[in-house]
C-alpha cells in the first residue's frame, strides 16, 4: 500500500471559511458529510445519477459526488444547510411542506438545492422546464407530481414577493 498523503483544503461553505483534510480520491459529498459533518447533502448513488448530493460549486449546480473534495480549494460551495436563512425556510422548502412534496425525504435536500438554482436562473419556469431541470433528481416516492407543484408555487410566490 502506498502511503496516501492527505490534502489540506481551504474553501468557503455557505459563505463561511472552512478547512479540512481529505484523501486525494475523496469526493466532495463525502468530505461535506464526514469531514465537515454536514449530512444534509445525501448520497444515493455516488455516480451522478440521483442528484441527492446536489450543491452549488462557484454558483454552478453540480453533483458533489462527482467533484473531488480537493477541487473545492479556493472555491465557494453552497449546500442545503445554507438555504434556510435567519430561521426562515426558503419558499421552495415551505411549498414542499405545504404540498406534501416529500415522503421519505431523502431526495428533498437535492431537490431544494436544484430547484433554487433553477428559479434563480428562470423565475417563471413552465411545468415542462421544471420537469426537465429536475430530471437528475430521482424521487422514488412521490411520482414527482407534488414536487413539481411545489416548485411552481414557490416560483409564483417569489415572483409575487
Amino acid at each position: 500500500m502506498m502511503q496516501v498523503r492527505k490534502i489540506h483544503v481551504s474553501t468557503t461553505v455557505n459563505g463561511e471559511p472552512r478547512e479540512f483534510l481529505c484523501e486525494p480520491g475523496q469526493v466532495l459529498s463525502d468530505a461535506l458529510r464526514n469531514n465537515l459533518e454536514m449530512t444534509g447533502t445525501k448520497e444515493g448513488c455516488t455516480t451522478g445519477d440521483c442528484g441527492a448530493c446536489s450543491v452549488l460549486l462557484d454558483d454552478a449546480l453540480v453533483c458533489s459526488c462527482l467533484v473531488l473534495a480537493a477541487e473545492a480549494e479556493g472555491r465557494r460551495v453552497a449546500t442545503i444547510e445554507g438555504v434556510a436563512q435567519d430561521g426562515r425556510l426558503h419558499p421552495i422548502q415551505q411549498q414542499l411542506l405545504e404540498h406534501a412534496g416529500l415522503q421519505c425525504g431523502i431526495c428533498t435536500p437535492g431537490v431544494v438545492v436544484a430547484a433554487k438554482a433553477l428559479l434563480e436562473e428562470n423565475p417563471d419556469p413552465s411545468e415542462e422546464e421544471v420537469r426537465f431541470w429536475l430530471a437528475g433528481n430521482l424521487c422514488r416516492c412521490t411520482g414527482y407530481d407534488k414536487i413539481i407543484l411545489a416548485v411552481l408555487a414557490a416560483a409564483s410566490e417569489i415572483r409575487g414577493a
Binding site: 454536514m38 444534509g40 444547510e81 438555504v83 425556510l89 422548502q93 405545504e98 425525504g105 435536500p109
Partner: peptide, 17 residues
C-alpha cells in the same frame, strides 16, 4: 404540514448513513 417536515427540507433529519 408534517411534524418532521422542517427537518427534512433543511437537511437536518438524520438518515441511516
Amino acid at each position: 404540514v408534517r411534524p418532521d417536515g422542517p427537518d427534512k427540507v433543511t437537511g437536518r433529519a438524520k438518515y441511516g448513513a
